[in-house]
Amino acid sequence: MISFAIYALTIIAIWSVMAISLNIQFGMTGLVNFGQILPFAIGAYAVGIGIEAGIPWWAGILAGLVAAPLVGLLVILPARRQSQDYWALITLGAGELFRLTMLNVPSIAGGADGVTISRLGDRNLALGLAVGLLVVAYLVGQRISRGPLGRMLRVIREDEVLAATLGRNPMAYRMKVTVVTWAMAAAAGILFGYVVGYIAPTSFLVTDTFLVWTAVILGGPGRNIGVVIGAAILILLSVSTRFMAEWSGLPSDLVANLRLAVFGLVLVLMFLFRPQGLFPETREVRDVDGR
């Protein structure tokens, strides 16, 4: 039982980091990234490709942490010209292009077959690293949220023109956010690779992006602690339904499908009845310099 709990906590911590990353992008800055899985996949694949190429483990990790923000800067560029719903489709496409490349070009990272990563055998170490990463991500998220940067991001989110009239360049802020959050998501992806020990295209689907979105919407966009709890609820829901399936005696495929139905329902009901999430962002009235 104990190692199952440790494993579940590790997975929760990893997806919480993803939720914080998306929260800074969407909750604070208003960036609608439907390709949130992309930096995660880049991080994981950097490690996998690094192992295939025989470079030292730290070099693979470094490559992931550098590559993801660079790709992010490329993806954010069209946000200068296109409104957020168009940009969302661009990010969705970017994530899929990466996945389809990995799937269809086996010489890069094994195609559909994927690549093996030497797994972190020690469960406690894996949990320690995941929680450590979560704490760092949370502190970064809080620092951004509480600091002058966070206040400026919220101004951009609410009124881009106002931000510009204040003499700030919204695009420069968005690029900063992208660099930080994509590196964060890449770190989660790297750890994911080492925890599951296997990298294949099926781990990086559009549906995974929406899992993170559900966590953020559930917890409350804008609040870091909220989205962490949101991610925790989702993973616990997913894990606990496995036990319910067994106890209920219903056919396992029926329960598996009903579990996904609950996810959809949670997303819709939150939007309808509690759009601010379980843990709403507290609105502050201040001027842009924090006085």
């Binding site: 190692s3 199952f4 494993y7 579940a8 997975i11 994911f192 599951v196 296997y198 294949a200 099926t202 781990s203 997913s238 894990v239 496995r242 396992s252 495929d253 598996a256």
Partner: peptide, 16 residues
């Protein structure tokens, strides 16, 4: 147990 054809879920199932 269901694996959803995903590595993470297969591991969750196996750990359980």
């Amino acid at each position: 147990e269901d694996s959803e054809y995903k590595t993470q879920e297969a591991l969750t199932a196996a750990t359980k």
